[in-house]
């Protein structure tokens, strides 16, 4: 009986512990911003690895998601005789939900896992200890730039995803299925609002970026310094990020729209 209650309590208490550690980490990262501002080159390097190298996967995924939306939307709307709103359907689903959510999840699996693995391996090969002994705080020098790079990258990638998705939807709707391109765009313009949709999309992406980046660096730092430990942390980064993004998306949508 005691064991049963313990086994219920353990995941809960370790979750609370994780929350505490993560927020302390976030605090430390925020405190190291002045250090980072003096070394912008560190962030540029991270932007390259987490942002530039994700361009292709984000653009291609966005394009295909847009095409699928166009195709499915067309088939469904046709039954109600309202294919003219296809543009709004594609644009609104992408900008409000799919863009930020899928970009954040793709970012977690493409760049977040890489961040975790890199930090985990630096820990396993004592590089972080070495930095500590040279009285350089690894949080400032390694963790904070990676975090900030991720936070900047996700909104940019989300905008890219939205754009490619809408172009993909337009390609299917207009070029393949023969909708009038004027109607496609004007329907979209009628229903998409700059403040309510696009600004909120950016805010969502920013919040997802903060969470995914924080999870990535936290998992890297708390990974066990073995091959097994690093691989399990990498998996955790992707799983926790996906769960966090989907749960947060629900909360944010409830507040925003």
């Amino acid at each position: 009986m005691k064991n049963l209650i313990q086994s219920i309590g353990r995941p809960f208490s370790s979750f609370i512990l994780m929350l505490g550690e993560t927020s302390m980490l976030l605090g430390k990262i925020i405190l190291s911003i002045p250090y980072i501002l003096k070394r912008p080159q560190l962030i540029i390097k991270e932007l390259f690895f987490s942002g530039v190298l994700s361009i292709v996967i984000i653009a291609v995924s966005g394009w295909f998601v847009g095409m699928v939306l166009g195709l499915q939307g067309y088939n469904t709307l046709q039954r109600f005789g309202s294919v003219s709103v296809l543009g709004s359907l594609v644009a609104l689903s992408l900008i409000r939900e799919l863009g930020p959510v899928l970009s954040a999840i793709l970012f977690a699996s493409r760049a977040g896992s890489g961040i975790t693995a890199e930090i985990g391996l630096m820990k396993a090969t004592e590089q972080l200890d070495a930095m500590n002994v040279m009285s350089v705080d690894p949080i400032k020098r390694i963790i904070a730039p990676k975090f900030i790079g991720g936070v900047i990258s996700v909104p940019i990638l989300t905008m890219l995803f939205n754009t490619c998705g809408i172009l993909g939807g337009k390609f299917v709707g207009v070029n393949l299925l023969g909708l009038d391109s004027g109607i496609f765009w004007s329907q979209m313009q009628d229903s998409v609002n700059f403040h309510a949709d696009i600004v909120n999309s950016i805010i969502k992406a920013l919040i997802f970026g903060i969470f995914v980046s924080l999870i990535s660096v936290y998992q890297g730092l708390s990974s066990k310094p073995t091959a097994e430990g690093v691989s399990s942390s990498t998996t955790k980064t992707v799983v926790h990020s996906a769960l966090a993004v989907l749960a947060l998306d629900f909360i944010l949508t409830a507040f925003m729209f």
Binding site: I95, L160, N162, T163, I166, M188, Q189, V192, F194, I198
Partner: peptide, 10 residues
């Protein structure tokens, strides 16, 4: 992309 979304889409 943001400008495209703001002008062409919204």
């Amino acid at each position: 992309c943001t400008i495209f979304l703001s002008l062409k889409v919204a």
